[in-house]
Design a protein around this nucleic acid. Structure first.
Lengths: 181, 181
DNA sequence: GTCTATATTTCGATAGAC
DNA sequence: GTCTATCGAAATATAGAC
């Protein structure tokens, strides 16, 4: 609380005036972060448009956005791991609706598009869940594991940014390639 | 410290006797966790054997292991995000050697194998870094984001386990599929 | 709404008996 | 090595002036 107050240029009493307790401040911070984890990803996936274009757009939007707040995924994952009850709030903040309401909207459209591709023989069957998880994993994980990857690959901040920039171009082809029959 | 002592069935004084401070206890816990994040992955990747077999073995070993400690990735990611200086210790604990020593061992062998496949026309070019990051992402992310995915996909613990079990079978084909020319 | 000052609680660390 | 008891520091929450 002291650190936060100092960084905000106020004192602890004011934080308490606005948030009433440390826990409620933590929840507010988490809610704001959660709403920024997957900007428009759900909207994109639920929208009309060719599957391949959706993938390309999700990758581009997501990597561009996370490049601006690279530690966001690590923060959210740490928080949700430590307090699993936040998971529901996370989905709610991401999508603006409850998990039960969101699920059909995303996975309904996605399943129909996958089925169409499979029927046309241009795609192997894949569960919509798996499709989404793989896409999220390939986009989000490099940021979540950023300090680890920087150490492992011997990159500084600039080198990491370049790594992501290349990824932005290559990832759609890699992802869609994994789905070819 | 109180919670940890209670769970361990001892008291705080004994924790201090063994670890001297909270920070040193945290480091010890982190080091132990780090050594379990990617069991044998580095060994497998640096070993002889066909690339396709390595991928299949890494996926199998990693998913089997993380299924037994599903919150390990989330803990490590949270810790490294909050304290990036732990990243070096993470690599060291994972591989038993410094990042600078490990890098050539993994990526040297990997690069040679990729180059051979590319020359034979059976694989698109891919940077060894990207290869490793994609593989790690697809294996580790589902566990790191487990509470979030459970909420998003509407799974309980058993449903998540089944999701991973299917993943164990499907992931190698998806991953290698993304590399075909 | 924002501050200073302070009360209250929690927590990490230590002393010392066994 | 393990415990009980306690010190001292730190942090959160509150009171009250402006």
């Amino acid at each position: 609380m002291q650190e936060i107050a100092a960084e905000a240029g106020v004192n602890q009493a004011l934080l308490h005036y606005y948030f009433r307790s440390k826990e409620q401040l933590a929840q507010a911070a988490f809610a704001r972060a959660a709403s920024q984890l997957m900007p428009a990803v759900i909207a994109v996936m639920a929208s009309d448009g060719e599957l391949e274009d959706k993938v390309a757009r999700v990758v581009a939007v997501e990597l561009d956005h996370l490049s601006r707040v690279p530690s966001l995924p690590g923060y959210i994952i740490g928080e949700v791991t430590h307090r699993p009850e936040r998971a529901r709030q996370l989905i709610l903040a991401m999508a603006g609706a409850s998990p039960d309401d969101i699920r059909p909207r995303i996975f309904g459209a996605l399943k129909a598009q996958i089925d169409a591709r499979v029927a046309a023989g241009t795609m192997r069957p894949i569960a919509p869940h798996t499709f989404m998880v793989n896409l999220m994993a390939l986009c989000i994980f490099p940021f979540a594991a950023r300090p680890m990857l920087m150490a492992m690959l011997g990159l500084d901040a600039q080198g990491f940014a370049q790594f992501i920039a290349r990824r932005r171009e290559e990832l759609p082809a890699f992802f869609l390639g994994g789905l070819r029959p």
